[in-house]
Design a binder for these strands. Structure first.
Length: 213
DNA sequence: ACCCAGGTGGCCC
DNA sequence: GGGCCACATGGG
């Protein structure tokens, strides 16, 4: 375990960049609402295929209307109001429905995120994947970052790292996820930190544009 | 004016 | 089970 390329890469990146902090936004997180879990879960959907900056504009719009809340979104009888709020994050015709589907799933099946967090990890992941608009990356992002569950997130940067290091070529999402998990200590903090470092490193490389948030 | 950003579902073969 | 494509915005 300690002498493998993946874990080694983690140690290298941590050496180079330090431990990443404030990877996710927490500008309005509170004990009650919105909780950090809510912000990250909702943010994970908003940030699909867009910059964090744009997702943040949408989060702020939701906050302003008191809709940065799993419960409040689940209660909506009409999603039109979400369209304008979500607009800066792009895909405003699909993201409101995705938010609603996710939020009503949580409320109906578990009541709240804290309860969902107690669900068996594999079952929780499978259930998230049945929702329209939540694919493997978003499901794992919600589980890892919003709910602090040990599941590794695979994104373009991670795939690139695997390819460049000759760890794996064109392999499936799940294969790569298991490869990383097999070669790392099963610790939430390490999964979170490593994935964050992979993105930080990836953004810094040539051909990539460094964006500040 | 073009290109990209912490994806996903639908379609095709 | 992969290979495309549409979806849409803000910023470089």
């Amino acid at each position: 375990m300690a002498s493998n390329k993946i874990y080694q890469r983690y140690l290298e990146l941590r050496e180079k960049h330090g431990s990443p902090e404030k990877f996710w936004p927490q500008w309005c997180a509170s004990k009650k609402s919105p909780t950090l879990r809510e912000i990250i879960a909702i943010g994970a959907i908003l940030t699909q295929r867009t910059t964090w900056h744009n997702a943040d504009l949408a989060l702020r719009n939701l906050k302003k209307e008191g809709l940065l809340s799993v419960n409040k979104i689940a209660e909506l009888s009409n999603l039109n109001c979400l369209t304008k709020l979500v607009q800066p994050a792009g895909f405003y015709q699909t993201k409101p429905q995705r938010l609603f589907d996710f939020c009503s799933f949580i409320v109906k099946e578990y009541g709240n995120l804290e309860n969902f967090r107690k669900e068996d990890l594999e079952i929780a992941r499978e259930k998230l994947l049945t929702l329209k608009g939540i694919g493997p990356e978003t499901a794992d992002t919600i589980l890892l970052y919003a709910l602090d569950r040990p599941t590794f997130v695979i994104d373009e940067y991670t795939k690139r790292l695997a390819k460049r290091r000759g760890l794996a070529g064109n392999v499936s999402y799940d294969y790569l996820k298991e490869l990383f998990e097999k070669n790392l200590p099963r610790e939430v903090k390490i999964y979170q930190g490593f994935h964050a470092l992979i993105i930080i490193e990836g953004k810094g490389e040539e051909g990539s544009i460094m964006r500040k948030v």
